[in-house]
Design a protein around this nucleic acid. Structure first.
Lengths: 194, 194
DNA sequence: CTGTAATTTCAGAAATTACTGAAAATTCAG
DNA sequence: CTGAATTTTCAGTAATTTCTGAAATTACAG
């Protein structure tokens, strides 16, 4: 692997962390490399940089495309495929969240829904269902929040994050302000405080 | 594996999903089983329920304890260890977030910090650093938000989630309300909107 | 078409990770 | 102490995942 030292440590770290996520070393390394490269890279450049086989790079890129984490580019008068990552890290975050939800959350929700449809045949099954229902409710709340928040443009999302828990404090003072919220219709949302 | 049908599908699903997370099948199954069991279980009961070896269960329980996801209980006049999961799903969520942060985020931040201390020796390294700095900034904002929010009790957290993106709309109206925020000191927080 | 460059596929090899059974260690009652 | 009950450790094996090289496919210029 012939890489600038700074890039190398980053790439190696992503390779190692890959396993703590669900991705393998090579995929992690490819992503890291593309992420810090000023120009799009073609497969052979990645092969050379990482010292892995051409076919491995091909499979890695394919996986990253499946995650929507890399972009395919073409240079004029060049038949090769070049790859980059999106520039906006917030967009990357959104993509990542979306894909992880799709792979890790949605299937579980489907299973839970199916199980919860069934009639419990015993005390124990009934208890099990109530636990699953708790889990279902929790995830549902989280994904509702996520659906709500994911549409926000970057600057608004940043604002929301910057506020953090201060929002709840802010809400406490709400009541003290006479005309607050006047003219808004539909105050009926789950968990809305009154 | 001798399990009630409802429990069985849940346990099997968690086993499969385990691989998409960073945990193995057995660990996923053990957790699922404990989660839906009305009473704490001892290792041998888990062995029987899941049909895996005693030593495998021992290692699985050990890993779950490392994640703080199971509780060890003792029954009077019984030397065996019994295990459960915490009741409160919100608490489970908090634990999970905490542990994942520890394992997946913190090491990356350390690496990024170290790399960003170094002097770039070329244009390319400089670009790489600026990308890493973007990533660092993003994660920092997210973890600041997380640190802020994680202390909230369950009901408040639920409130915050229920509000979701509506908070930003709420903030827009803020300016229109004359006395809002009066008497509060220190309005100086990163990203605070004015 | 034909030939070449680029990419993908895939069977098997290599590496990693998970699991088991036997042995060792721990715990505790008597 | 002794010894039975319980848990842990660990070397070896099984299972799974990752990676490679060779062959197949695709894409396209001439």
């Amino acid at each position: 692997m012939e890489l600038l030292p700074i890039v190398q440590s980053f790439v190696l770290h992503f390779g190692e962390m890959g396993s703590r996520w669900g991705i393998n070393r090579t995929v992690g390394q490819i992503y890291a490399l593309l992420y810090v490269s000023p120009e799009p890279l073609c497969a052979d450049q990645i092969v050379e940089a990482l010292g892995v086989s051409r076919s491995n790079v091909s499979m890695g890129l394919r996986e990253l495309q499946g995650w929507n984490l890399v972009l395919l580019k073409h240079l004029p008068d060049d038949r090769r495929d070049f790859f980059t990552t999106p520039d906006d890290v917030w967009q990357i975050l959104r993509t990542l969240a979306e894909e992880r939800k799709k792979r890790e959350i949605d299937p579980t929700m489907t299973v839970l829904r199916e199980i919860l449809m069934q009639r419990p045949a015993s005390e124990t099954e009934q208890y099990a269902q109530s636990r699953m229902s708790d889990m279902y409710g929790l995830i549902e709340q989280l994904t509702n929040w996520y659906d709500d928040v994911k549409k926000l443009e970057t600057d608004r999302l940043a604002t929301l994050l910057a506020l953090g828990a201060k929002v709840t404090r802010l809400l406490e003072t709400k009541d003290k302000i006479v005309s607050f919220g006047k003219g808004r219709k539909s105050r009926r949302h789950e968990g809305e405080i009154e």
